[in-house]
């Protein structure tokens, strides 16, 4: 977009430019209207949750976008009670998700590089297996996962039941397939001539990986990171099954306690918790956005 067609006629140029500018402004206006529509669609349920979190009634229906009365009661319930240590849960979730995110990105980047750049026997089969394992409906694997982590914990307690280590181990295993696939796709979209020419210059795979490809795929590292973070952060069933101590539980499990009873759900408290819980994700995204969006600099392409 930045490059401009050349023409020698000065007058014609300004006319075209003026016309272009006008056209662009029109386009921009249309785009902004479209974006506003999308934003409205994305946010009105959120506003509704916010409204539920300050509404004095504990109900999810019959709520307007504007609450029928504002109270911070739900937030107080959430934050000031030693029986459900919300801040502790929040911290646990952030800790577990961050560690999972970093390790998962690292490990799956290695794997993706290998699948994308090497042609070896068994490559297709391995790739397909990794993927098929990934699409296996895992709703029933929880019993086996529990037993496995229990077994490991008998020997290495910091990776057993009631440990964040064990939980992270399970998350890592679960996220690898999809992340590897995701990144392999991106590695594939980076032309091979880049590293082939480096190879001719005598660079090792390790150098090519770190100095040429890694900076190039930074956007996707950030994307995969955020996706892993969110998936880990929102997981309910695995954390619930592996962790039973209140102090160790994660946010999703903790919040569910408020709506676990069939007839006495505390929707207001839950909505407040869900909103506060969404904050770390938004903050993380703001932090990572520069990598996602501005990931491609001229320097990186030159390698």
């Amino acid at each position: 977009m930045s490059s401009v067609a050349t023409t020698t006629d000065r007058q014609g140029r300004t006319a075209i430019q003026r016309e272009r500018r006008r056209q662009r402004q029109r386009q921009l206006a249309v785009r902004i209207v479209l974006l506003l529509l999308a934003l409205a669609y994305a946010l009105f349920p959120i506003i509704w949750i916010a409204s539920a979190s300050v509404d004095p009634r504990n109900s999810l229906v019959n709520l307007g976008l504007i609450p029928r009365g504002a109270t911070l009661k739900n937030y107080e319930t959430l934050l000031n009670n030693s029986i459900h240590p919300f801040t502790r849960w929040l911290w646990n979730s952030i800790k577990v998700s961050t560690i999972t995110m970093v390790l998962s990105v690292l490990v799956s980047t290695f794997a993706a590089y290998s699948f994308s750049r090497f042609r070896f026997r068994g490559r297709d089969a391995t790739l397909l297996t990794v993927f098929l394992i990934q699409v296996f409906p895992n709703s029933l694997t929880i019993v086996a996962t529990f037993l496995l982590i229990q077994e490991i914990g008998n020997y290495i307690p910091s990776f057993g039941l009631n440990s964040h280590g064990g939980l992270i181990l399970v998350y890592l295993g679960g996220a690898l397939g999809i992340n590897t696939w995701l990144m392999k796709g991106f590695f594939d979209s980076v032309p091979r001539d880049l590293d082939e020419s480096a190879m001719i210059d005598g660079a090792s795979h390790w150098r090519i990986f770190w100095q040429i490809l890694f900076p190039l795929v930074r956007p996707i590292l950030a994307v995969v990171g955020i996706l892993t973070f969110i998936a880990t952060y929102n997981d309910y069933i695995i954390a619930l099954t592996l962790l039973k101590n209140t102090q160790q539980q994660t946010l999703a499990v903790g919040l569910n306690l408020f709506v676990g009873e069939q007839f006495s759900q505390q929707w207001g408290v839950f909505a407040a918790g869900a909103l506060l819980g969404a904050l770390p994700v938004v903050v993380l995204y703001l932090l990572m956005q520069d990598y996602i969006v501005g990931g491609l600099t001229a320097g990186a392409v030159k390698g």
Binding site: V107, S108, F110, A111, Y113, S114, F115, F118, F120, R123, T126, V130, I133, F136, N138, T141, I142, V143, A144, T145, L147, L148, L169, V170, L172, G173, G174, L176, G177, T180
Partner: peptide, 22 residues
């Protein structure tokens, strides 16, 4: 090439393959 994904594959064998086989 396997060297590059041995960490990932190890984790998968341990954490995913067993529950799936189970």
């Amino acid at each position: 090439p396997f060297r590059w994904f041995s960490p990932g594959l190890s984790l998968m064998v341990l954490m995913v393959a067993y529950p799936t086989l189970f």
